[in-house]
């Protein structure tokens, strides 16, 4: 089976700086893949190249058999890639329900005339969209009471969930989560991890996540890719990656690498 997303020799240069250099990797359909690396490793740049915010300087990004280099973000979303943001980017002054409805925008078809004259098909579409939005809010664990709450007034954890609901509303095949548990307490993190599993299992999705929290990444990902200074340095099962000396070195510096070989790096103890 062909992989859902395939990156072939992706490179991104900003002027003289090469943020991502010749990275190739694949995501199998139905898998949960983690993309990790120290700060400045090029994770988010890579993410932005998938979603169309940046165009790769070199290489090909192939989604579902289609080359998507330089496709506009809205078109990429339409093809089936939904995303969340590292620092939450909800539509702050719209209600939770409206946020999810906006997510469904690219799956709706009513045109201007349909809107102005509120045709039966527009009403039906709107009603269905609304029901789906309510269902999605419930699915991610936001109660009915939150539906009319302004997004900016929701608690932090709920905002993260709402972002997931909004991304799911675009009917993605591939869901990109940019540090979904950033700033969450352990309880919220566990709940979100559980949600990611559920999303994958019940909705037949493929998930790519960037994460700093090693515990989350190692616990949830089936495969992990490690970037450091724009270069892919390791790839494989979480357990393999964890003990890869290059990874340990990238995270903790050369001094620790030797120690890491012996007893495993301290950061990964909890994993």
């Amino acid at each position: 089976m062909a992989p859902l997303l395939q990156a072939r020799g992706i490179t991104k240069r900003f002027g003289g700086l090469t943020a991502v250099s010749d990275v190739s990797f694949e995501i199998e359909k139905g898998s949960i893949v983690g993309l990790i690396g120290p700060n400045g490793a090029g994770k988010t740049t890579f993410f932005n190249m998938i979603t169309g915010l940046y165009t790769p300087s070199d290489g090909d990004m192939i989604f579902n058999g289609q080359r998507i280099n330089g496709t506009k973000p809205s078109e990429v979303t339409k093809l089936g890639i939904g995303r969340t943001f590292q620092n939450i980017r909800l539509f702050a002054h719209m209600t939770a329900l409206e946020n999810v409805l906006v997510g469904q925008h690219c799956r709706m078809h009513t045109g201007l005339l349909g809107t102005l004259f509120r045709t039966p098909s527009m009403r039906a579409e709107e009603k269905a969209a609304r029901q789906k939005a309510f269902a999605l809010l419930e699915y991610v664990g936001l109660g009915r009471n939150s539906a009319d709450e302004m997004a900016k007034n929701l608690p932090y954890g709920d905002q993260r969930r709402l972002e997931v609901a909004r991304a799911l509303a675009t009917d993605p095949k591939l869901l990109l989560l940019d540090e979904p548990t950033a700033g969450m307490n352990p309880k919220e993190t566990d709940a979100l991890t559980e949600l990611i599993y559920r999303v994958r299992d019940e909705r037949d999705l493929t998930v790519l996540l960037i994460e700093h929290d090693m515990k989350v990444v190692m616990g949830i990902s089936e495969r992990v890719t490690v970037l450091d200074r724009g270069i892919k340095i390791s790839e494989g099962l979480p357990r393999e990656v964890q003990t890869d000396p290059k990874v340990v070195e990238a995270y903790l510096g050369t001094g620790h690498a030797a120690k890491g070989k012996g007893g495993g790096a301290p950061v990964f103890d909890k994993a």
């Binding site: 809205s74 980017r89 539509f91 719209m94 409805l101 925008h105 690219c106 909004r166 991304a167």
Partner: peptide
């Protein structure tokens, strides 16, 4: 909704599939 989403956050609106 697309107008308002664009007003709130143009980049996020773009990423949510709004032209």
């Amino acid at each position: 909704r697309a107008w308002m989403a664009m007003r709130e956050d143009e980049l996020a609106a773009d990423a949510m599939g709004i032209n």
